[in-house]
Design a protein around this nucleic acid. Structure first.
Length: 547
DNA sequence: ATAGGGTTAG
């Protein structure tokens, strides 16, 4: 009964709010749990501490649905003596983070806590901070922290990981400094977060100091060592990472540790080391996936093929994510037929599989095939929907192959059929397609359309507009585009070259000369283009040719 | 109540 009334309430709420993404999901789960939950046989405890430990044990066991269901049964029986307290709410907040429904639901729990005064303690506030942090509400999270009267190290750590979670390492450092000023005694959790900040800011010296603190702590903790490995590899010190990895003797290394080490070695093209590390354990799909991404980045077909063999040997070819990385690796290394055969072999293709395949054809100049895969994807039907990246791949494929009608059609589908809002990047591709086809008026009408929709043009959009003007001798509006581009990114050499090409195209050689001298005084040079070739006998090393 | 590893464009 209580589940039905809850879902009814939630449904009412969802019709009024914009947060529609997760609440229907919660309703499904609770409806499902109504029939399947282990709770259907359970007698409800008659005092709050028993109820709390039952809820906590559900959460620990990874069954947040039962925890939430039990919690709502409490609310229905509010007239009885069993009333939720701070302990109940902390478990419930954790359960809602586990379900990733914390946004609106978490706010409701917060409201109830305020009503009953269960929000005042440090532990409760830390749980609230963590809930807001996990659903991306940075402002709410910091507000909760500011309200705390007593802040222990756990509260500080929660604030730290809050900043790291939303990719704000500089603010995280600010928190660490503040902790120093307040004389908070650092814990392992603090050091872990500190290492993560150092890794994302590439702060080598600072990270080494944190390493010192880790050693002083004197415990072989696998989590801290993984963070150290991750830190050292992300600042390019693979040898230091390997030292940490091999010095970890007394402690059991888990998969995450191996995965971190493998992906670090591959990113720095230390394949021998990567394969040696992989040799210690049965390889897992994640390690192989990250190894493949490294191969794609380095265009290293040789290593990619080795990893493909390992994946086949261990039976990981049913893993969609691994296959996506494999397909992308072959595509980026120019082996389009291999990429296709991997794609065909994926049983459960997701949006990334499809997008990678479309992009594979597109970057190989096979626009028709890309459009064909896109059509197939939409026909296969409702199961996999294209996202904005998919559309970008299709549009860019059309641009590379001069497929004007297909490009127009795709842009139309993006808005009209899939209800997506085009990003500036989509507009840039689209403008490029129209410009190459010689439709300069359509180019500018697309631009005006974009402005009307409230999308601000980025440098990429001005680049596309400028190119279109060069191709179509649109002198006046071209100068406008050039002006905007140079305002947005005045010090990017490729932009100045582009503007100078525009003036060359309209026979204004005086301007070309002026721009060249500006480049000289600014000391800018256009980056050299790169090509990669494999040399027989040296096939493990790609050679870069400057053009 | 807080901590470590994986996929898509340009």
């Amino acid at each position: 009964m209580f589940v039905r009334s809850l879902t009814a309430k939630l449904k009412q709420k969802t019709s009024k709010t914009s947060n529609l993404n997760y609440v229907p999901f919660l309703i499904d789960i609770l409806n499902h749990s109504f029939t399947n939950s282990s709770l259907s046989h359970v007698h409800f405890p008659s005092d709050i501490s028993q109820t709390n430990s039952l809820i906590a044990s559900y959460v620990r066991r990874g069954d947040p649905v039962s925890a939430l269901t039990l919690f709502h049964s409490l609310r229905r029986r509010a007239h009885s003596d069993v009333v939720a307290d701070a302990y109940t709410f902390t478990s419930i907040l954790r359960a809602s983070s586990l379900l990733r429904v914390s946004g609106q639901f978490g706010t409701q729990v917060h409201a109830q806590m305020l009503k009953t005064g269960a929000d005042s303690g440090t532990v409760a506030k830390t749980a609230l901070l963590d809930m807001y942090s996990k659903c991306g509400s940075l402002d709410e999270a910091t507000k909760v922290f500011d309200e705390m009267r007593h802040r222990d190290v756990v509260a500080w750590n929660a604030l730290l990981s809050c900043f790291l979670r939303c990719d704000r390492p500089v603010e995280a450092f600010g928190v660490l400094r503040e902790m120093g000023r307040e004389n908070v005694e650092l814990s392992e959790f603090t050091l872990c977060s500190a290492l993560k900040s150092c890794a994302s800011l590439k702060a080598l010296e600072l990270g080494r100091q944190v390493h010192g603190l880790v050693v002083c702590m004197g415990r072989d903790l696998v989590v801290l060592s993984t963070a150290l490995v991750d830190f050292y590899t992300s600042v390019g010190c693979v040898d230091d990472a390997l030292k940490v990895f091999y010095s970890l003797k007394g402690c059991w290394k888990d998969d995450m540790m191996y995965n971190s080490m493998v992906s670090g070695c591959v990113r720095s093209r230390r394949y021998d080391e990567a394969f040696r590390v992989m040799g210690f354990v049965r390889p897992n799909a994640i390690a192989l996936t990250s190894a493949l991404v490294g191969c794609s980045e380095n265009l290293d077909l040789w290593a990619g093929k080795q990893i493909h063999c390992v994946a086949v040997r261990w039976g990981f070819t049913f893993d969609t994510q691994l296959c996506n990385a494999l397909l992308d690796m072959y595509a980026k290394c120019g082996r389009i037929s291999q990429a296709l055969s991997v794609f065909d072999g994926i049983c459960e293709k997701d949006v990334i599989s499809w997008t990678c395949m479309i992009d594979a054809y597109g970057r190989n100049g096979q626009g028709r095939e890309a459009v064909e895969v896109f059509r197939e994807m939409r026909e296969v039907g409702s199961k996999v929907l294209p996202n904005s990246v998919t559309f970008l791949s299709v549009l860019s494929a059309c641009g590379h192959s001069g497929l004007v009608e297909e490009g127009k059609n795709c842009f139309k589908l993006l808005r009209e059929k899939y209800g997506l809002q085009p990003d500036p990047e989509h507009y840039a591709c689209y403008i490029d397609i129209l410009g190459r086809a010689g439709n300069i008026e359509e180019v500018w009408s697309a631009y005006h359309n974009m402005v009307v929709q409230g999308t601000r043009p980025t440098a990429g959009v001005w680049v596309a507009l400028l190119n279109a003007c060069s191709l179509n001798q649109d002198v006046e509006r071209g100068e406008l585009a050039a002006k905007h581009l140079l305002q947005l990114e005045p010090n990017k050499a490729s932009n100045i070259v582009l503007v100078s090409n525009f003036y060359a195209a309209i026979d204004r050689w005086d301007c070309v000369e002026e721009l060249r001298s500006i480049m000289r005084t600014k000391g800018l040079a256009k980056e050299a283009g790169n090509s990669w070739i494999n040399v027989p006998g040296f096939n493990r090393h790609a050679i870069s040719l400057s053009a």
